[in-house]
Simulated assay, not measured.
Amino acid sequence: MAGLTLYTNPMSRGRIARWMVEEVGADYDVEMLGYGGTMKADAYLAINPMGKVPAIVHDGHVVTECAAICAYLADAFPDAGLAPVAGEHADYYRWLFFAAGPVEQAVTNRSLGVVPTDDQQRMVGYGDYDRVVDVLEAAVSAHPYIAGDRFTAADVYVGSQVMWGTQFGTLPKRDAFLAYAARLADRPAHVRASELDDAAMAEMQAAG
């Protein structure tokens, strides 16, 4: 039994965590959970009381939230070279948490039809959707990767937001977004993770 277990569902943000696990090259076990079933069962709620995926358990330690999982695994498996090095920390943490905070909130609210008024924009962490998109575009345009000239764990999370957003229409298909996504899509770990999750999805759908 591996010291790392991924709790996920192939139709969830768990695909981000799967990609990150594949990037670090660790041996890991997978527990596939169903919405409304095993995801809400006592056994899993003991791991993540939110009843949501993904979560990882590494050597007895629980980590939830995709951005946290990416940052944790980069530190836990330093040989993968995905943690920030000198000169990268500021952009690495800034854009990792910008994507986990303002981008996630702005995209979710827009998808739900929630548009803050001018006064409400002072209360929400992202201000307004258009501003978030413009700032994100500038971030992915500044360097080949989000923290500089090389791929890091922050690109797993930010890149997932951009790839999903442009694919499903929650982000506009601006040239900078498409170019950034293209730099990430062919990474062997991303391809491998996508194939594994696509196969798991087919199995779950076939099982009903």
Rank of each mutant, 00 (worst) to 15 (best):
D130K: 12
P54Y: 09
R187L: 08
G36N: 02
E104N: 12
M123D: 15
L184T: 11
D91V: 01
G60C: 09
V24R: 06
C66E: 13
Y126M: 10
F98M: 00
A179N: 11
F97Y: 15
G25R: 05
P102F: 00
W19E: 02
Q161T: 14
E137W: 06
E65I: 08
A193V: 03
V115E: 15
E88I: 05
T108S: 10
G81D: 07
P54K: 10
G37Q: 15
M39C: 01
W19M: 09
M123P: 00
G159E: 02
M20F: 04
E195L: 11
M20A: 00
L196R: 12
Y129S: 14
Q205K: 09
D186W: 12
A182Q: 13
N48T: 10
P10K: 04
A182I: 03
D134N: 12
P54A: 08
Y129H: 15
A138F: 13
L196C: 03
H58F: 15
A147K: 07
Y72L: 10
D149K: 09
F177P: 01
Y7E: 02
A202M: 10
L136F: 00
S12E: 03
Y7V: 06
A138M: 13
G208L: 09
A176S: 11
V63P: 00
Q167P: 15
A193C: 02
E203P: 08
M1V: 06
Y35D: 03
P144C: 06
E88G: 03
